[in-house]
Write a protein that binds this DNA or RNA. Structure first.
Lengths: 141, 141
DNA sequence: CCGTATCCATTCTGATACTG
DNA sequence: CAGTATCAGAATGGATACGG
């Protein structure tokens, strides 16, 4: 409802429909932020095959620290993408599983991953070419 | 070819096909890293409607600093997603446009954005509920 | 087993000032 | 107009130690 000095919106990010406002833009970026961090997608990927316990995830996601696993799981749980269930046995057993929403996330994520996979060679080549050209520029100067 | 202590791979991130190796996993995460940063998708979104000059982008992408616009554009250019064309007039005119690869990125990105848009309310609600529950936990302790 | 707390290094980002 | 350089603060991530 606030006056917009820059009413133009990026079609890829926020479809130009009347009921998509700046709030949606922000929400989209927040979601992308979560999904784009270092571990979230990897964890969602592992959970796609079924629930896993904390230390099972820790062993699966090679290289992740305990701290980051906890933090990332909390984030996913907070957003309602992952469910945490505790059985108060000794020792305690904690399972993590995708929620229904978490499951639906899998589809667009897979599309993006497929794109990344299809274009990774082209991207690597582009990087190499770009870096080589930069080198040349520096020498020319 | 190296022995893998953890051969299991996240299906969402790395499809379990024989010719997708750990390199692909890394490449995918690199791509996701680029796409997941603060400004890239926003810029790709604006360029989806056609080429734009540097300062046109600056005015469109509200809140971006000159520095970050430069850096993000360089990154996208390096990855071959955006093309930079200079006309050496005075003052110089520099146009940025999506490359063919950049254009193909738009489709999976739109799918993710659509998901984010469809689920943003649920996610916001989940966050509120989670935070409220955390508050309760703190008080209970 | 499943965390939390603390500390530290690295990276990212924005503000500002300056150049061809 | 289209950048680059420099600096400071914020955010991110890892290592380690400790607690329920």
């Amino acid at each position: 409802m606030l006056p917009q000095r820059f009413p133009q919106k990026p079609s890829a990010i926020c479809p130009n429909s009347p009921d998509i406002d700046d709030q949606a833009c922000l929400a989209v970026r927040e979601v992308l932020n979560r999904v784009g961090d270092k571990w979230s997608l990897l964890i969602v990927g592992y959970l796609a095959e079924g629930p896993l316990r904390f230390n099972e995830l820790r062993r699966s996601v090679e290289g992740i620290s305990q701290r980051m696993l906890t933090l990332t799981l909390r984030g996913l749980e907070r957003d309602g993408l992952v469910a945490r269930s505790v059985q108060a046995t000794t020792p305690p057993r904690v399972d993590y599983a995708l929620t229904p929403i978490g499951l639906t996330l899998l589809e667009p994520v897979r599309a993006l991953v497929a794109w990344a996979d299809q274009n990774r060679v082209a991207i690597t080549d582009a990087r190499t070419a770009f870096d080589a050209e930069q080198q040349g520029q520096d020498r020319a100067a």
